[in-house]
Design a protein around this nucleic acid. Structure first.
Length: 174
DNA sequence: CCCTAGCGGTGCT
DNA sequence: AGCACCGCTAGGG
């Protein structure tokens, strides 16, 4: 009886940048995905069924997520967040994500700098991998991590997104 | 610009 | 245990 992942509730968020999808576990916001290029048309695919979360609580969380995303997309601090469920990550990944959350809008750090802050100098590459595994892009600001030479580095959601988010925060980059 | 070696964490066999 | 990934980095042509 291997416990496969619970059916996370998925709720869409429509923004000027397209339709995001938020995923909630019983513990809180567990995932956020960028708009899919071809999904501009029609039926929002909200899947509330099978939720272990009381509808009222879920709605409250989702309101907070929508507000936070709206603000973050505008290059501002997300403000109040719903509870975040980052429990799927390894200890190292969670440590990296926590470090990212200490970066405020407009503030950047290199992969190696994050590694150094975690007292794992030399783990820059691993930091990059952990950023790539970040389940809550934009809200957990993996886009604020740049390469050591101030170039962009990578971004799972596509470098266009990284550029846009940094630009909105007024960050200069190469 | 390119290439290379070395790096640490993760997941699959 | 081994191995092949990776949003990396420093060094050299």
């Amino acid at each position: 009886m291997t416990a496969i992942g619970k059916p996370h509730v998925q709720l869409t968020i429509t923004t000027n940048d397209g339709q995001f999808v938020a995923a909630y576990s019983d513990k809180g916001l567990a995932g956020l995905s960028f708009p899919r290029p071809g999904s501009s048309s029609g039926a929002p695919s909200d899947t509330r069924s099978g939720s272990a979360v009381p509808p009222g609580k879920l709605n409250g969380w989702h309101e907070l997520t929508k507000q936070a995303l709206e603000r973050a997309l505008a290059g501002r601090s997300p403000g109040r967040l719903p509870p975040l469920d980052l429990g799927q990550g390894t200890e190292f990944q969670q440590a990296v994500w926590a470090a990212l959350r200490r970066l405020s809008p407009g503030e950047t750090a290199s992969y190696s700098e994050i590694a150094r802050r975690l007292e794992r100098p030399g783990a820059a590459r691993a930091v990059g991998a952990a950023c790539g595994a970040n389940p809550l892009p934009v809200l957990v600001p993996c886009h604020r991590v740049l390469a050591a030479d101030h170039r962009l580095g990578g971004f799972s959601g596509g470098l266009d997104w990284k550029r846009a988010l940094l630009r909105r925060e007024g960050v200069p980059f190469r």
